[in-house]
Amino acid sequence: MFCHHLLSNAELKPGLVARLDLGSTEEDREREILTFYKKTGIDWASPFSVILTGDAAIGDDVKQHFLSIVMEKIQFGFNLDFENTGRTLLFNGTGDHKVPSTSKALIDGDLFRVAGRAIGHSFIHGGPRLTGLSPAMLQLIVGSNQEFAALELADCPDTDVLDVLDSQREQERCEVNNLAFGWDLPPINDNNRRWLAEKILQHAVIERRRAQMKQLRKGLKESVVLTMIKERPALAEVLFPKSAEQVMDSQTILKRIIWPMPDSEDEDDHSNVEETCLVTGFLRDYIEKGTTTTPEVLDRLEYTFMLKYLQKLLCQSLQPASQR
């Protein structure tokens, strides 16, 4: 009803046109998407159409295809490499505990504001939605007091912090104290152990993401959908559904994997390249055609598991035969 009201009121407004060159590289297409959503002063409920250069198709199917590409990038990451990490992820975490990345490059580029506009725009026009956002982040979006945001250990994607919080050994108190001192918190003692753990978790998840959430809220506000969830907080879970509602298929899984490249030192070792291709080819074929890759199975193939499994296979395949 909210989206229908917005679209009806904007029917007579100038149309908004997005262009995507199918003949360009993946990185160039991502730049076109980011440039489109960096536009300011736009009514994102305006009549929307998409022109795919190199493709004669038009209409709602093309529009939905474009929005699917956009939301896939926001959900799983961009190929554009801002910090030499292979892929730029806007959100980290697994399941229903995804939180914004702490990358300074993304903050400086105002990319979470861009993400907020894209999320709102896709929602208004019936496109895919961002799934799996942490409940704590949802509370911040609707304006709940961050002191009372319901945090869980799973909301913290920083393994170093989790290792410290899980530490029970006395000799590791110094690691807890180092982390506490770095965030202007008191040292640990027998009376404040639980309180300090909660404060460290709050800082690791909430405090380090203030700027990101501020940008995201601005983007959602500019697309008007923030109004909806502020007036009806329960609708936050409609805008940001659980990960169980995410449609997973073989192509989605394949796009999430960062495939290994031959090391420059091994360029002359053709046997290594051949075996690498064999392993990656087998994995691709299994994901695309394997009889066990039902939607339920694919849904459980998390990106981190797939990458670790692939690395293990590659390490085994690149060993001399005598060591296998």
Rank of each mutant, 00 (worst) to 15 (best):
M1Q: 07
F2K: 02
C3T: 12
L6S: 00
L7H: 01
A10S: 11
E11Q: 15
L12V: 02
K13W: 07
D21S: 06
L22G: 13
D28R: 13
R31F: 06
T35E: 15
T35F: 12
K38V: 02
G41C: 11
G41I: 03
F48A: 08
V50P: 01
V50N: 01
T53N: 12
A57E: 13
D61C: 03
M71K: 10
M71L: 15
Q75V: 01
L80Q: 11
E83H: 11
E83A: 14
R87A: 03
T88V: 09
T88E: 05
L90N: 05
F91T: 07
N92A: 09
G95Q: 03
H97W: 05
K98N: 07
S101T: 11
T102W: 01
K104R: 15
A105V: 07
D108E: 13
A115G: 03
A118H: 00
H121A: 01
F123G: 00
G132C: 04
G132F: 01
Q139S: 15
V142Q: 06
G143H: 07
G143L: 11
Q146D: 14
Q146W: 12
A149Y: 06
A149L: 09
L153W: 05
A154C: 11
A154P: 02
P157H: 00
T159R: 08
D160A: 12
D160E: 13
D160S: 13
V161A: 10
V164P: 00
D166I: 01
S167W: 02
Q168N: 10
Q168A: 05
E170V: 11
C174Y: 12
N177H: 10
N178S: 12
L179S: 08
L179G: 05
G182W: 10
L185F: 06
L185N: 03
P186D: 07
I188D: 01
I188A: 02
D190P: 04
R194K: 13
L196H: 00
A197F: 10
A197K: 14
K199Y: 04
K199L: 14
I200F: 05
I200M: 07
L201H: 05
L201K: 07
Q202G: 03
Q202W: 13
A204I: 09
I206C: 08
E207S: 15
R210E: 04
A211M: 02
A211D: 10
M213W: 03
M213L: 15
K214W: 10
Q215V: 00
K218S: 10
K221A: 12
S223M: 01
V225Q: 02
L226M: 07
T227D: 11
M228F: 09
K230L: 08
E231K: 07
P233K: 01
P233M: 04
A234W: 02
A236C: 08
P241M: 04
A244N: 11
Q246N: 09
M248T: 09
D249L: 06
S250Q: 08
S250D: 06
Q251S: 14
W259F: 10
W259K: 05
D266V: 05
N272T: 10
E274R: 11
T276H: 06
T280N: 04
L283W: 03
I287S: 08
E288S: 15
T293R: 12
P295T: 13
V297D: 04
V297M: 15
L298C: 14
D299E: 15
E302T: 10
E302F: 03
L310S: 11
L314Q: 09
Q319D: 06
P320N: 08
S322E: 14
R324P: 00
